[in-house]
Design a protein around this nucleic acid. Sequence first.
DNA 1: CACCCCATGTAAGGCGTTACATGATTAT
DNA 2: ATAATCATGTAACGCCTTACATGGGGTG
Lengths: 182, 182
Amino acid sequence: MNVRTICLAILYDGEATGYEIRKLSVEGEYSYFIDASYGSIYPALARLETDGLVTSRVEVQDGKPAKKIYSITAAGRSVFIQSLFEKLGQDEFRSEFLLFLRFATELPQSLVEQRLSERLAEVDAELADFDRLKQQHSHPGDAWVIDYGRTCMQASRNYIEAHRGELIAMARPDTGEAAAAE
Amino acid sequence: MNVRTICLAILYDGEATGYEIRKLSVEGEYSYFIDASYGSIYPALARLETDGLVTSRVEVQDGKPAKKIYSITAAGRSVFIQSLFEKLGQDEFRSEFLLFLRFATELPQSLVEQRLSERLAEVDAELADFDRLKQQHSHPGDAWVIDYGRTCMQASRNYIEAHRGELIAMARPDTGEAAAAE
DNA sequence: CACCCCATGTAAGGCGTTACATGATTAT
DNA sequence: ATAATCATGTAACGCCTTACATGGGGTG
């Protein structure tokens, strides 16, 4: 799943600028698929236009920079849907947090405790975010995926809360030293 | 979280060759942190050795190619643990499967049904894998992380099974055409 | 007979990030 | 005043993947 595909997916439901696509991919509903930066989005859109999968028009604005609004073409829709027929790539999951927890036995108790609390707060923020997203979107596919994400996130939270004590117990008791840098 | 760090993490618990590290990162317990290929592991180990964080010795074998066995040094241990004190990177999650489901309304019912069944089978295989991993590992950090993974995976499975009907209902009813390629 | 496992490594190329360049407007 | 938001784009660089190179031994 590359930036190109995500651009087509976003444009499938309506026009957007590169700037908006980045926002959606970082903060919006698409953040559960990818996190794309300008440096990848703008070149991807340019190439999609060359390939005839999207078109653009420039809209001059008052007091703001001009926008380049992209729309998907019939060819673009077809290519995108066709790509969904192909064999799906593997889901990817990477967690520095879990690597950290795996080594709880080598780390000071206070640090482990702190990171667990931070994570719970992050998860709560994400859960609230799911609720916010859900209210905005009536598209049924969106709703399903958002509920799925929320459910998994909630399961993760429940597990962490129920079993955090075990991690703290296996960590190294704090000796006088301050639990280092940020 | 890069290949370098994963190599140190694996070597933290004992010696290994580049070949073994790749296996662990793809099939073993570390597959939940990264999926690394030879092309990244061998150069990473070479650089770690130059930097004095690991050492190696060659073991000649009968009927098999010679092995290059890497061990972590005291400096390596220290650098690795120190890296865990630093601010943690964001967890990453990417799912082509969810992107596919988001567009269920645009896809034939039979295809959606097929992909859901495939996924349930994959999840079951992964759950079995978690159980297998759990029996092998007595390291408490490992056990915690494996249980965490298993719990989240089970929650995902439950949700898919309970709500698959909604996706199938929103998909396009099959017209005569065969539900395309693989 | 073909293919997979063991085992190490290199080279080319893809895909993405970060930082840079630019600049007006609006909120704190 | 200072920073954030809007808005587009390029250039350098990093990190990893894929494919190649090599080759004996075991399995279907």
